[in-house]
Amino acid sequence: MTIRAVLFDFSGTLFRLEQDESWLTELTDHDGTPLDIEAQAELMRRMTAPVGQVVELDAEHVHAWQHRDRDPGLHRKVYLEVLKKSGVPHFDQAEALYNRLIDPSQWTPYPDTEAALKAAAERGLKVGVLSNIAFDIRPAFTARGWDAYVDEFVLSFEVGAIKPELEIFRKAVRSLDVPATETLMVGDSEEADGGARALGCEFALVDPLPTAERPDALLTALRGFGVA
């Protein structure tokens, strides 16, 4: 087996939306009571869950949830509803928190993200970032100079397909001009990212732990396939 390209997922794989106390200290429930630590942690989980509906939604919002990563308008609509259903009833507070979610500068890279991207690029592999996402994540890389290691960004809202649909994996491997059978997909979701296997890609699963608790999972994944 020869790996000539690596596709990395974004959320929970290369970067993570970490809880920042300053975002949540002024959040209150319907009664004006500040949200406790457990409620705050659950909010962050619901905002970044890669698959699965996280709250009960009506038919209109179910449709928005299912297509949120294809359409920025639907993404905003359903996440404001998710926040409302998750104990943030005040629109201005929900909107401020949502704006944090879609701001690439607010996302925290894993400790070995740079090393993993650089290792793959320096070995001559094609490198892609393949994400179910409704906003442009490129600034998170360009701000750090890491875009130099990435050949292609394949973002669901730009290509009109989402993981685990085969079409988005096809678009990704075509963009790198490497056969699927010589491509490794690295991601945190067996369901979404693992769908690459159906196209013939290899797959490495990483755990979307807090960044401080996952120092070298990306490098370990690459080493498992002899590419780091």
Rank of each mutant, 00 (worst) to 15 (best):
residue 43 L to V: 01
residue 131 S to W: 11
residue 127 V to Q: 13
residue 165 E to M: 07
residue 38 E to F: 02
residue 98 Y to T: 03
residue 66 Q to Y: 01
residue 7 L to S: 13
residue 149 Y to R: 03
residue 23 W to T: 09
residue 30 H to L: 09
residue 146 W to E: 14
residue 76 R to S: 01
residue 66 Q to R: 13
residue 93 Q to V: 08
residue 65 W to I: 03
residue 82 V to T: 00
residue 81 E to M: 04
residue 181 T to Q: 14
residue 222 L to N: 12
residue 53 Q to K: 10
residue 27 L to T: 10
residue 149 Y to V: 01
residue 35 L to F: 00
residue 37 I to C: 00
residue 165 E to V: 02
residue 131 S to N: 14
residue 45 R to F: 03
residue 72 P to I: 12
residue 20 D to L: 10
residue 81 E to C: 04
residue 90 H to F: 14
residue 69 D to Q: 09
residue 135 F to Y: 15
residue 82 V to D: 07
residue 213 E to P: 01
residue 48 T to W: 01
residue 227 V to C: 10
residue 198 A to W: 08
residue 86 S to Y: 01
residue 94 A to F: 07
residue 132 N to K: 03
residue 134 A to G: 12
residue 145 G to E: 12
residue 15 F to P: 05
residue 133 I to L: 09
residue 138 R to A: 01
residue 168 I to G: 04
residue 187 G to I: 03
residue 160 G to H: 09
residue 216 D to V: 03
residue 120 A to L: 03
residue 106 Q to I: 01
residue 32 G to W: 11
residue 206 V to F: 07
residue 160 G to N: 11
residue 183 T to E: 07
residue 8 F to Y: 13
residue 81 E to H: 03
residue 26 E to K: 11
residue 69 D to F: 15
residue 194 G to T: 08
residue 62 V to M: 04
residue 190 E to C: 02
residue 10 F to A: 15
residue 140 A to E: 03
residue 123 R to F: 02
residue 87 G to V: 09
residue 188 D to W: 01
residue 43 L to C: 12
residue 150 V to K: 00
residue 26 E to D: 15
residue 113 T to I: 10
residue 209 L to N: 10
residue 49 A to P: 01
residue 23 W to E: 15
residue 76 R to V: 10
residue 45 R to T: 02
residue 149 Y to T: 00
residue 62 V to H: 02
residue 18 E to R: 08
residue 118 K to F: 00
residue 93 Q to Y: 12
residue 32 G to E: 05
residue 1 M to R: 04
residue 172 A to H: 01
residue 184 L to N: 03
residue 114 E to F: 11
residue 42 E to K: 13
residue 180 A to F: 06
residue 1 M to C: 02
residue 222 L to D: 08
residue 172 A to S: 15
residue 97 L to N: 11
residue 145 G to C: 14
residue 18 E to Q: 13
residue 178 V to R: 06
residue 71 D to V: 12
residue 126 K to L: 04
residue 131 S to P: 14
residue 49 A to S: 15
residue 118 K to G: 06
residue 142 T to Y: 07
residue 205 L to R: 15
residue 52 G to F: 05
residue 94 A to M: 11
residue 179 P to Y: 12
residue 74 L to D: 08
residue 78 V to H: 05
residue 52 G to C: 10
residue 50 P to V: 05
residue 115 A to K: 10
residue 113 T to L: 09
residue 40 Q to K: 14
residue 228 A to T: 06
residue 156 S to L: 01
residue 35 L to Y: 13
residue 106 Q to Y: 00
residue 104 P to T: 14
residue 195 G to M: 07
residue 183 T to W: 10
residue 101 L to C: 02
residue 106 Q to V: 02
residue 70 R to V: 06
residue 97 L to T: 11
residue 91 F to Q: 07
residue 108 T to F: 09
residue 63 H to L: 05
residue 180 A to C: 04
residue 228 A to V: 09
residue 88 V to C: 06
residue 34 P to F: 03
residue 223 R to L: 04
residue 89 P to W: 06
residue 107 W to S: 12
residue 95 E to P: 00
residue 13 T to F: 07
residue 102 I to T: 15
residue 83 L to A: 08
residue 102 I to M: 10
residue 83 L to S: 06
residue 78 V to Y: 05
residue 16 R to H: 14
residue 212 A to N: 08
residue 222 L to P: 00
residue 166 L to C: 06
residue 20 D to I: 10
residue 88 V to N: 11
residue 197 R to S: 00
residue 195 G to F: 11
residue 127 V to W: 13
residue 152 E to T: 09
